[in-house]
Structure formats: structure tokens, C-alpha cells
């Protein structure tokens, strides 16, 4: 540290202590609370709560929704990032704004748009009813809402990286005789693989954890349209605290594993030079 930027030792420690305190109070404490509350009466009730058929259905539904939303948004995000980073075209700024829209819109709105479109009184409601297709208050609605909310993650992670890397490597591949497909698999994708994985994991974390938008389109039918976050709310409102916290703990655990995987990938990526 140069003398010009050196702070007295006491101030440095004070700042570090403050940061640790805030971190502990706002991040670690709630997380710890979830696990302690869940395990308040030991493992037995936790296992029982997770084995409950409604809880099982919620877990399966959450995994199903994520299993659809994550791959779709990975492909969509890749395509969007590629267009924005590689080409200039009329409407490029608009596309960028659209990609970020789900970040800025309230999750409630993100859910409500689907009700307005596909609900019984929505634009396409009567037609859907006539053809016996259920979207809102059913699994398709949950998938749509989750897709919408989690769309930006992959694209936003890739765009800055792809913009920085530029088009030169792909052009080099073309002059060397590579087809577009070969160039994508051998040059583009390997150059962004770590960032892509990181974006996919963030997308996954949100897909499993989304509450607001999903809550609007779910209809809260137990065992049918309740995802894990919604199931937690229902249990909590019925004063089944152990059950609520057990499911919440599982959800938190999934998120933690996802984040750990992301951190690990970023370290791997930094070492192999794939993130920069």
C-alpha cells in the first residue's frame, strides 16, 4: 500500500469489522435462522415434512419448472447476447432494453401479464377455454412466468464478455475455412463457457426460488401448482413452522449449492483464462 492511500490501522479494522457485522446481520443470520428453526425439534419432523405428498409434489414441480426454464433461457440468452455483441442493427438498443426488462419490472407484473393474456378473462382466455387448454393456474403458466423472470441472467452475463472479446476470433475462424456451425462450437462457445455456466447457475437459482410472479399465476392448488417457495408460504400461514422451515431449508440448500458451484467455476475459469 502506498503512503498516499494508507489509512491508520484502527480505521482499517473498524471498516472491516463493520463490513463483517453487516454481512452477518443481513446475510448469515437469516440463513442460520432458517436451518435452526427447521431443526428445532431434531431431524424427525424435518424428514416427515419433506416426505409429505404435497411437499414432494412441490419439490418435483420446482425441479420440473427449472428443468424447462433453464435450458430454454440458456439458448435464448445465448442467441440474444450473440446478436447484441456481434452485430449492429436497427433496434439493437431496444432489444437490449427488452432483455433487461424482467429485471426492472416487479415480479407481480411479470406474473400478471400471463393472467391478462391467458386467464379466463384475458385476451386469449375464451379461445383457450373453447379448446380446453389451461395455461394460467396450471404448469404452463408457472413455466411462462419463470421463463420471463429468469430470461436476463444468461444474456446479461454473456453480453459484456462477448463485447469485449469482439468478432476477430470468429472472423479468423471464417478465413481459415470454418463454417458458422464449426466456428460456434470450436471458437465462440469455448471462449465463453465459464461465463455461460455462471449465467446458467444464476438463472437456475432464480428459477427455483422465484416467488412473486409464480404466486400470481399459480392458483395455489396443493399438490398441483405449488412450487417450493409457494409451499413454504402456505405451511407458514397455517402455523406449520417446522414444515415451512424444513422446505425453506431445502430451498436455501439448493441455492447454496448453486452458488458454491458458480464460485468454483469462476475460480476454474480464471485459472484457465476463460472468464477474462
Amino acid at each position: 500500500m502506498t503512503p498516499a492511500t494508507a489509512e491508520p490501522r484502527a480505521i482499517r479494522w473498524l471498516l472491516v469489522a463493520l463490513a463483517v457485522l453487516l454481512l452477518g446481520a443481513f446475510l448469515l443470520l437469516p440463513l442460520a435462522a432458517v436451518f435452526t428453526e427447521a431443526l428445532r425439534r431434531g431431524w424427525g419432523p424435518v424428514v416427515a415434512a419433506l416426505a409429505d405428498p404435497d411437499a414432494q409434489a412441490a419439490i418435483r414441480l420446482t425441479l420440473l419448472v427449472a428443468a424447462i426454464a433453464v435450458p430454454v433461457n440458456t439458448l435464448g440468452g445465448l442467441a440474444g447476447a450473440w446478436c447484441i455483441a456481434r452485430f449492429t442493427f436497427p433496434g439493437r438498443a431496444l432489444l437490449l432494453a427488452l432483455i433487461e426488462l424482467p429485471f426492472s419490472v416487479s415480479p407481480v407484473i411479470s406474473g400478471l401479464v400471463w393472467v391478462l393474456l391467458f386467464g379466463a378473462h384475458g385476451w386469449f382466455g375464451p379461445w383457450l377455454q373453447a379448446h380446453d387448454v389451461q395455461i394460467v393456474f396450471a404448469v404452463p403458466g408457472l413455466v411462462l412466468a419463470t421463463l420471463f423472470v429468469t430470461f436476463p441472467f444468461v444474456a446479461r452475463t454473456l453480453i459484456p464478455l462477448m463485447q469485449e472479446q469482439g468478432r476477430a476470433a470468429e472472423e479468423a475462424a471464417a478465413t481459415l475455412g470454418a463454417s458458422g456451425w464449426q466456428s460456434f462450437w470450436r471458437v465462440t462457445l469455448p471462449q465463453i463457457r465459464w461465463a455461460l455456466l455462471s449465467g446458467v447457475l444464476l438463472c437456475n437459482a432464480r428459477a427455483m426460488g422465484e416467488f412473486g410472479a409464480v404466486s400470481v399465476v399459480s392458483g395455489h392448488i396443493r399438490g398441483e401448482t405449488n412450487t417450493m417457495p409457494l409451499h413454504v408460504e402456505i405451511l407458514y400461514n397455517e402455523y406449520q413452522f417446522v414444515g415451512a422451515f424444513a422446505v425453506a431449508a431445502l430451498l436455501a440448500l439448493l441455492a447454496l449449492v448453486t452458488l458454491a458451484a458458480k464460485a468454483l467455476l469462476e475460480r476454474l475459469g480464471a485459472r484457465r483464462g476463460g472468464m477474462a
Binding site: A169, E171, A172, A173, A174, T175, G177, P190, Q191, G273
Partner: peptide, 19 residues
């Protein structure tokens, strides 16, 4: 197209495949 021209191109900043 570029890939069928068989013209070698050395880019200003080389554009090597970094991976």
C-alpha cells in the same frame, strides 16, 4: 464466402484462439 476463399488473414491483434 470468406471460408471458401482460401485467403490467409493475419489480424492486427492476431485474434488467436485463446483457449
Amino acid at each position: 464466402p470468406a471460408r471458401a476463399r482460401r485467403i490467409g488473414f493475419v489480424f492486427q491483434h492476431y485474434a488467436l484462439f485463446r483457449h
